[in-house]
């Protein structure tokens, strides 16, 4: 039987789209990670690990395989780009106890990802505290060159900013059809990452939550296709 989720090979095979960001090259991968070539940083956002068990506490029993599936995809990206630094841009864990609920396999998987690399957990609104007994450092925000990495976009930030939190999605309509996909949202100054966790939904970039964050004439939604990324201008985008 063929797998519904992309296999690790399929994830790895995607063709990244190169974007110029702060005079440096960033590769936007259709799997939903961004690779900053110069600094060898792999950025990923909103992993929401242990979302399944978080729901189970409220007696909604999502399949308990989300953490393993998300980490396997992340491991594939790490293998593909071989970064020096991995930045999880916040909401790496679905709630503040989530890191404590991680199973052995998940801990091992994180350890393998972090081996010989720097792993940085930016805190988010879901996980405001540093994760417990997990490799890597925890910070509220950090900067590389002129680029700031934080979880929630800050409209007052004037420099280059890479963030997450909003789970951007874009929708286009054509030929009587409608396609909605997660996307990177960027105007070349700010880059909002798509959510990477397998149980994470998305918010349309036309939503009010995105208002004021972008210079619209330069805005593009970089929609995640099956194995490539499609840059779509603001005029083509539709709300939900």
């Amino acid at each position: 039987m063929r797998a519904a989720l992309k296999t690790v090979d399929q994830v790895t095979a995607g063709e990244a789209l190169a974007l110029s960001f702060d005079d440096a090259e960033v590769l936007l991968d259709p799997a939903g990670v961004a690779y900053f070539v110069e600094h060898r940083i792999l950025a990923v956002s909103d992993l929401h690990l242990e979302k399944g068990s978080s729901y189970a506490r409220r007696r909604v029993y999502l399949p308990p395989y989300d953490t393993a599936a998300t980490l396997a995809r992340l491991a594939a990206m790490v293998a593909k780009y071989d970064p020096a630094t991995i930045i999880s841009l916040g909401d790496g864990f679905h709630d503040k106890d989530a890191s404590a609920r991680l199973g052995h396999e998940a801990r091992d998987a994180i350890a393998a990802i972090a081996a010989r690399r720097e792993l940085i957990w930016v805190t988010g609104n879901h996980d405001p505290l540093p994760p417990a007994n997990v490799p890597g450092d925890s910070v509220e925000m950090l900067a590389f060159g002129r680029t700031v990495f934080r979880h929630i976009p800050d409209a007052s930030e004037f420099g280059h900013e890479v963030c997450g939190h909003l789970h951007p999605c874009a929708r286009i309509v054509g030929g009587g059809r409608s396609v909605r996909r997660p996307c990177f949202a960027s105007d070349g100054i700010r880059l909002i990452m798509p959510s990477f966790g397998v149980f994470t939904g998305g918010l349309n970039v036309c939503d009010d939550e995105f208002a004021g964050l972008f210079e619209m004439s330069r805005f593009r939604a970089y929609m995640l296709g099956k194995d490539r990324v499609f840059a779509v201008g603001a005029r083509k985008l539709h709300g939900d």
Partner: peptide
């Protein structure tokens, strides 16, 4: 999303 995960894993 649930469907995809479930189909792959169980």
């Amino acid at each position: 999303l649930i469907y995809d995960v479930l189909r792959t894993h169980e």
